[in-house]
Amino acid sequence: MDQALREHLATVDRLVGISCLTDGAEQIFANAVLEAGGQLLVVVPADGHRENLPPSARQDYDALVRRAFDVVSLRFGEPTAEAYRAAARHMLERADQLVAVWDRRSADTAGGPVDVIREAIRRRIPVKVIWPSRPAVPSR
């Protein structure tokens, strides 16, 4: 996945990655954007989003937030399904393309890959799906 993601990002002019920095694929994506010389915009779905991440993902989350050129916090008190769907909509409103790094483990989650890909298609935003060679192991 890393190689395919990096190869794709190398083709993007004026690279700006937009992410909620959830654990797994989103943090891999954010790191790849920065390593490719791009900028990072972080969308925080709700208060408590960081605490909702597995403890093992919080240090990387903090490091990526510090490297972001902007952090947008949505006005949700708790990280609910509604908050994650709103974050996905917010990201798509700013996106020229959706790069979906789908690890096959979050297909039915709110604001997860299926929801986001469907919404991008509805909005006529080009979608590039990058599949890992094997599913990511949940860190939870």
Rank of each mutant, 00 (worst) to 15 (best):
M1K: 11
D2N: 13
A10W: 00
V12T: 12
V12H: 12
L15R: 05
V16N: 03
A25N: 05
A25Q: 00
E26L: 00
Q27G: 06
Q27W: 03
Q27E: 07
I28L: 10
N31M: 07
V33F: 04
L34Q: 04
L34I: 09
Q39R: 15
Q39V: 07
V43N: 01
V44R: 13
P45E: 06
A46V: 09
E51Y: 03
N52K: 12
N52G: 14
P54L: 01
A57K: 05
Q59L: 14
Q59G: 10
Q59D: 14
V65L: 01
R67E: 13
D70R: 15
V71G: 07
V72C: 09
V72A: 12
S73T: 11
E78G: 02
T80H: 06
A83E: 11
R85E: 14
A87T: 05
A87Y: 01
A87G: 10
A88V: 06
R89L: 11
R89V: 13
R89Q: 12
H90A: 14
M91E: 11
M91Y: 06
R94T: 01
L98W: 02
L98G: 02
V99L: 04
W102F: 08
W102G: 00
R104T: 10
R105S: 04
R105D: 06
A110H: 13
A110N: 11
G111K: 12
G111N: 08
G111T: 05
G112Y: 03
G112F: 10
V114P: 04
V114A: 10
R124E: 15
I125M: 07
V127S: 11
V129K: 13
V129E: 14
I130S: 04
P132Y: 02
S133N: 13
R134C: 04
R134Q: 14
P135G: 02
S139K: 11
